[in-house]
């Protein structure tokens, strides 16, 4: 879908605590959760892998942040769907122990198709299991990592909320209508959020693994030096652009120019080059001292362990 979905009011959701306000929903997915989801999609032996989404729900339920997820196995034989509820419960209890703040938000599926099973799954997470999002409405997230020709594509995430279809509650019971798994899924916008720290970590992961990476706190200096390198690379790029503008090769973007001039004229409380060098050397000396002390202590400990074992064998 190339144009965004229209979502300005929250649909009437099939849950007691849903729809208290009409403000549109915002779903954000943390980068680490996205990685988990992408990983889940490679387990694909059957038609889909599904699991639970954990995260934070704002008080009015209009902002939902997916932080964590786990896979819940299921079997799909003919028209029957068996979800391993026991696994779901034990996983939930485990994650609750490590992260008591995270609540169950809904579920994900690696199949981007919505079919009758989707409704059954949604039932399970909305109210079917002893651990479900009830009374809050559940969200559903689909992740697509391959296109129709089975080529790997950038993960495509679509999130949905479900609203009831036809009769519901007491009326449905009264009329004896089977309501299991009938939902209208409304797409809601979502976005992936990440922090600078995660981005830096990712840039390290991207590096070839067999590179001789420095260990200990030398990493800090190497990273700093690399960052400085990339920063001067950026400065070079801007400089090349500016040169082109001055030589009349291209028409300069006035807005960009103004912003540049105003930012470059910024005068932060600067440190002189000499003072900086002095600070750096001090820092290096300090960290060397700490490393030296740590290493001596380790040697001492090893020595004492050896001695103890000798003394004990003597006795």
């Amino acid at each position: 879908m190339s144009t965004p979905v229209l979502h300005i009011v929250r649909p009437n959701q099939a849950a007691p605590a849903g729809s208290s306000a009409a403000a549109p929903l915002k779903v954000s997915i943390q980068a680490s959760a996205l990685l988990q989801l992408v990983e889940s999609s490679y387990h694909e032996e059957t038609t889909r892998t599904t699991g639970a989404l954990l995260g934070i729900r704002s008080d009015d339920g209009s902002e939902i942040e997916v932080v964590d997820s786990y896979i819940v196995p299921h079997q799909q034989v003919g028209e029957n769907l068996t979800i391993e509820g026991g696994h779901h419960i034990s996983q939930y209890v485990l994650s609750k122990r490590t992260n008591p703040d995270l609540a169950l938000l809904g579920w994900f599926s690696t199949s981007h198709e919505l079919d009758a099973y989707t409704g059954l799954f949604h039932d399970f997470y909305s109210r079917g299991s002893s651990i479900s999002v009830h009374p809050h409405p559940a969200i559903h997230l689909t992740i697509q990592t391959r296109d129709s020709e089975n080529n790997i594509i950038a993960p495509k995430l679509i999130s949905y909320v479900a609203s009831p279809v036809g009769a519901s509650g007491a009326l449905a019971a009264h009329l004896n209508i089977e309501k299991v798994g009938s939902y209208a899924f409304t797409p809601v916008p979502n976005k992936v959020v990440y922090s600078t720290a995660e981005k830096t970590a990712l840039s390290w992961i991207k590096e070839p693994t067999k590179l001789a990476l420095p260990t200990g706190n030398a990493v800090e200096l190497v990273t700093l030096s690399q960052e400085l390198g990339s920063l001067s690379g950026l400065v070079d790029r801007v400089l090349a652009y500016t040169d082109k503008v001055i030589s009349g090769e291209i028409q300069g973007d006035e807005k960009l120019g103004r912003e540049l001039l105003s930012q470059l004229s910024a005068k932060p409380t600067s440190v002189s080059a000499d003072a900086l060098e002095k600070l750096f050397n001090h820092h290096t000396q300090d960290s060397l001292l700490v490393e030296y002390l740590a290493s001596s202590i380790r040697t001492q400990l090893e020595l004492s362990a050896k001695l103890t074992s000798i003394v004990q064998s003597e006795i």
Binding site: L221, L224, V235, T242, I246, L264, A273, E277, F280
Partner: peptide
Amino acid sequence: WKLIRAKLNTWKGSLKAIKETVDQAK
């Protein structure tokens, strides 16, 4: 734009100096 170029060159110079310091420390 010329002013920007001059300023960028100064920045480039200072960045280089800082990088040298860091590399030395390394």
